[in-house]
Structures are given as C-alpha cells and as structure tokens.
C-alpha cells in the first residue's frame, strides 16, 4: 500500500484507514425515482427476499447485504442503479431544483447524470459531456435503462465545452466529477494503486483545472458548481480549487454533509492553499465504510 502512505499525515486514524482500504466494498443501489418510488422498490426487493438496509443519510440508497445489484426484477425495470454510496454525494450537494439547466462535465457512465435527472424529476435539462466514446455508450445505456428523457449527451473535451448546441443560456448549476487518480476506489479496484504515478497526478490536475474553470464560466452568476473526485491527492483536490478561486469569479460555499468527513487541507508538500479550501470535504473509507471521496461547492460570483 505504498501510495496510500503519502496520505498518512492527512488521515485522522491511519490504522482504521488501512483496515477499511483492505475490505471489499458493500454493494449499494440507488432507487430511480423517475420510474418508481422508494416504497415500491422496498416492496419489490422484499418480494424477492433480497435483504437490504436504507442508508441513514439518503432514503434512496440501499445497501444490499448479500446480493449484487443486477439480477432481480426491480433492477430489470430500471428501478435500481448500482452506485457506490459516496458517489451519490455530489448530486445531493449540487441540489438542483426542477426545471433547471445543469451541466455534467465529466459524465460517463452516468451514475450522477441519472441521479441529477431524477432530482430534477426528469424536467429541465441535463447536458452530459464526456470525451470517451466507449464510456459515452455506457452512459447512454444507463440513461435509457433508467428512463431519463431530460438529457442531452455530447462528446467533447470539458475544457472547451461549447454552448452552441444549447443557445438558450448559461447553466444554473454544473458538476465536475473529474477524472482522477482514483485511490478512493481501492476497495473496488486494488489495481489503482499499482497504476499510480506522480506524472499522472500532474497531468490530470491540469485537466481538472481546465474543466472546473470552464464550468464556472458556463454557469450563470449566482449559480452553483460542485467539484468532486475519488482521489486523496491534494494536488487534484485543494490545489485545483485554489487555482480556480484565483482564475475565475467564484467562492467556496459551506454545505451540510450528514456523513462523517474531515475538512479540506490548506497545505501540502510545501505549498499553501487559499484557506477557503477548508470548506471542501474529505471522506475517507473508514469514516462511513465507503469509498474515499472529495467534494467542494462553489458559488459563481460573476
């Protein structure tokens, strides 16, 4: 677990952290409220003797106690979507209102796109962008399976996202669920640690900065942008926020998160960040028995 060692100074309980990283991840599904209700989904699972518990913080998330998501009737009807618990955080933090226009900048395979669509009650518009065509086809399969009709999908680099196909206006909100080093998914995919390099961190950080800048630019004044990753690397988290706070009209906003977490860090490897980055939240795997995650909420001020 070499790579994880670099994060020891940031973690509150190093032993619990390593223990959690070694355990496999509980299987979690989100109820797709475009096609059903939480109550009907519960009844359908109970009818198939599938044991589950509802998460304490989100009534649409069920932990499956000994099943995989894909092999039951409610799944086949598009009532359920397999989605890691922390992956359901950013759409909640973005907190869209029905009728709004949302940009999901790094959208494939669409767990958060479809969650945003459901939070909008399948009204308004979610523009879902990704630059990987193979992943876009997975995104399309998910939006269709889940019955989403308020979505427009484009293949492009988020850093140069064009509003041309959508001339109406800027977005009310945007989500940048950025490509990253993914150490936070180690419980699902231990290989991420083998593949980790510092060069990749630096390269991807420049994509993250570009995508987040574009999101602030494309969102109306008074709108909201959420930035999230599944990496622990401050280079890809607080340093990205620090850069964008400087470069674009925005500020970090506080938000409530009913999950155990710690604050963003203000210093890393000799660099100091804008103290506002403490308003971001870090979730470590041992906090809530989930994957690792990072999430920040920005208000657009110009």
């Amino acid at each position: 677990m070499n790579v994880l060692e670099r994060y020891e100074p940031l973690v509150d309980d190093v032993e619990a952290f390593y223990d959690a990283c070694r355990r496999s991840l509980p299987s979690v599904v989100r109820v797709n409220t475009i096609k059903t209700t939480v109550e009907r989904a519960k009844r359908a699972l109970a009818a198939e003797d599938i044991a589950f518990e509802v998460t304490e913080w989100n009534p649409t998330l069920f932990r499956l106690l000994d099943d995989q998501p894909g092999a039951n009737w409610p799944y086949v009807h598009g009532w359920l979507h397999g989605q890691e618990e922390v992956s359901a955080v950013p759409a909640r933090v973005l907190d869209p209102d029905p009728g709004e226009r949302i940009w999901d900048a790094c959208a494939a395979p669409g767990s958060k796109t479809t969650q945003l669509a459901a939070l909008l009650g399948d009204t308004g518009l979610v523009v879902a962008t990704d630059n990987n065509l193979g992943r876009i086809s997975a995104l399309r399969s998910n939006t269709e399976r889940l019955g989403v009709t308020n979505v427009a999908v484009t293949a492009e680099d988020a850093r140069t996202h064009s509003l041309k196909p959508f001339p109406q206006a800027e977005y009310d909100r945007a989500l940048v669920d950025a490509p990253c080093s993914c150490e936070g998914t180690v419980r699902k995919n231990p290989d991420v640690l083998e593949d980790w390099t510092v060069e990749h961190v630096e390269g991807i950080a420049s994509v993250q900065k570009g995508a987040l800048r574009r999101a602030v630019q494309a969102t109306r004044e008074g709108g909201t942008v959420v930035y999230s990753t599944c990496t622990f690397a401050p280079e890809e988290n607080e340093a990205v926020l620090d850069h964008v706070l400087d470069a674009e009209p925005c500020r970090i906003e506080p938000f409530d998160l009913p999950l155990e977490h710690t604050s963003g860090v203000t210093a890393w490897h000799g660099k100091q960040f804008d103290p506002a980055v403490q308003g971001a939240k870090r979730i470590y795997p041992h906090h809530n028995d989930t994957g690792g995650f990072f999430c920040a909420r920005l208000a657009v001020t110009g």
Partner: peptide, 19 residues
C-alpha cells in the same frame, strides 16, 4: 427520439432523451 423539453433544431449531439 423523445426528449423532455425543447432545444433549437437541428442539434448535432450524441443523444437527446431516449430512442
């Protein structure tokens, strides 16, 4: 394809609502 809402026509994108 069926889409909730409206956009200007034509639009050259990957997907719009569902087939």
């Amino acid at each position: 394809w069926v889409c909730r809402g409206d956009l200007e026509t034509p639009v050259g994108i990957e997907a719009l609502g569902m087939l």
